[in-house]
Design a protein around this nucleic acid. Structure first.
Lengths: 224, 224
DNA sequence: TTCACCATGTGAAACGGTTCACAGACCAAG
DNA sequence: CTTGGTCTGTGAACCGTTTCACATGGTGAA
C-alpha cells in the first residue's frame, strides 16, 4: 500500500489525518536526481511539498547569483507552504542534495481541504510559524554573530539527525561557506585552526566532529 | 460606534469579516506610550494584534542586547500571528514609536473562529506568508548587500506611506543604524557623502530625501 | 600510471566596517 | 543666557573578511 512509503519521522509523523490523506491521494509524485532543482526563487509556485526520501537544500539567492544555503530538509519535512495563499513567486530555491522523492499537493486542493477540515489550516499556520522562527534565528545570527560562530552552529545543527549526533558531515568547504555566508577561504582557515586544536577532523569532502562540546563553545563565542 | 475606529488602510481594510468581528468584540484594547514595549522577544505570547493608531517598531535582539530593527508597522497592520499555534516565545520585540492604540485577540478566540470560519485560517496563512517573504528579503539583504545599499533601501522603504512618498524621515542616525545592522558612525559617514552629493538633507533627528532616483541607484549599487 | 580536475591550505594585500576618541551643533530646562 | 545632554561629524587605528594568487593533495578517467 502506497501510504507505507510515508516517512515515520519529521513533521509528517504528526501531520493531520487530512494532510496524510491528501498526500496519499491527490499528490503528484516527483523524483529528483542529485543537483536537480525542484523550484527556484522567483518561480511561480502553487504547491506544498512533502519529502518522502532523500534530502533537499533550501537556499536563497542574491540578485548577483550568490547563494545562501539556509537549511537541509530530510524525509518527513513539509515545505512550500508560503505559496498556499498566493500563487506568487517562491522566496527560496529548493535543490536535491541526493536522489530524492517528494510529493506535491496543489494550492487549490489544500485550500479546499482547509475549508472542509479547518484544523488543517491551523496545522499549516503552525508550520509557517516554525519556518518564521527559523528565518528569524538565521537573520539574528547573520547580523550579530561572527563567521566562526555561525560555522560552528551550522556544523552542530547539520550533524543532528533526530536525537542522534552524526559525527561526519559530508559537505565540501565551498558548500559550508554557502551555509554561513562567507568565502571558502575563510571557512578553510577557520576549519584549519579547529583541526589543529583537535576539535574536528577535516578530509576531502567532509568534516568529522571530534569534540562536540568544544565546538559548542566556538558557537557561543563572539570572537575566536 | 466602536468599529469606526478601525483603520481604512493596511491589511485590516481587507481583513475577513470574521476577523473584523473579533476585533470589535472579544479584542482587548491596549494603549501604549512612546517607547513602551508591547511584547518582547522570548516572552510567552498568545495573542494576535492589530494596530488602530500610532506606529510600532518590530525588532529582533541579539543575545548580547544589540538590536536589529526590522520594520515599522502602521495603522491597519496585523502582527503576532506566529503565536497563534504555539503560545511559545515571541520571535521579535514590538515597541511603540509614538503613543499608539492596538487591539489584541487571544489565541483561543482565533482558533475557535478558524474552526467556524475556515477562510480566516487561510487569511492568516497569507499573513504569515507575507511576513516570511519580508524576513527572507531582510536576510538576503543583510547577507549580500553592503551597508550603504541597505541604508538606501531602508530610507526608501520607510518613506513610503501607502502610495505616497514622504520626503522627511524622523529617525536619528542611531536608530537608522539599528535598521541596517551597522554602527551610528558608519551611517553618519554614508549620510554625509550623500548629503554632499545633494541626494538627501540631514538635520538633527531626521533625514529629508531630495533625490529619490539617486537614492534608488545607491540601493542597487553593490559598492559606492 | 599519468593526467586533469577538483578540493583544500595558506599567504599577502586590499577593503569595509568597527572601535575609540573627541569636537561641534542643537535643544530644553533652569 | 547659560548649562547639560543628546545628536552629529570625522579622523585614526584596528580587525575580520574578501580577493587574489598559488601550492599541495586526492580522485577518477584515460
Amino acid at each position: 500500500m502506497d501510504s507505507l512509503e510515508l516517512p515515520q519521522s519529521g513533521f509528517l509523523a504528526h501531520a493531520s489525518e487530512e494532510l496524510t490523506r491528501l498526500l496519499n491521494s491527490v499528490a503528484t509524485k516527483v523524483d529528483l536526481d542529485e543537483g536537480e532543482v525542484l523550484f527556484e526563487q522567483g518561480d511561480t509556485g502553487d504547491a506544498l511539498y512533502a519529502i518522502m526520501s532523500g534530502s533537499l537544500e533550501f537556499s536563497i539567492l542574491s540578485s548577483e547569483g550568490r547563494k545562501l544555503a539556509v537549511d537541509v530538509m530530510r524525509p518527513g519535512a513539509l515545505f512550500g507552504e508560503i505559496a498556499l495563499f498566493d500563487p506568487g513567486t517562491r522566496t527560496a530555491t529548493v535543490t536535491a542534495l541526493e536522489p530524492s522523492r517528494v510529493r506535491g499537493v496543489k494550492n487549490a486542493d489544500i485550500l479546499a481541504a482547509i475549508r472542509e477540515t479547518p484544523s488543517l489550516g491551523i496545522d499549516l499556520i503552525q508550520l509557517a510559524g516554525e519556518r518564521m522562527r527559523w528565518m528569524s534565528t538565521q537573520l539574528n545570527e547573520q547580523v550579530f554573530l561572527p563567521m566562526p560562530a555561525r560555522l560552528a552552529r551550522k556544523i552542530l545543527y547539520l550533524t543532528v539527525d533526530g536525537s542522534e549526533h552524526l559525527s561526519m558531515l559530508t559537505f565540501s568547504q565551498a558548500e559550508l561557506a554557502e551555509f554561513v555566508g562567507a568565502t571558502r577561504e575563510a571557512v578553510s582557515k577557520t576549519l584549519s585552526t579547529w583541526k589543529r586544536a583537535g576539535v574536528i577532523d577535516v578530509s576531502r569532502g567532509g568534516v568529522r566532529v571530534l569534540d562536540r562540546d568544544a565546538l559548542q563553545v566556538m558557537a557561543d563565542l563572539h570572537q575566536i
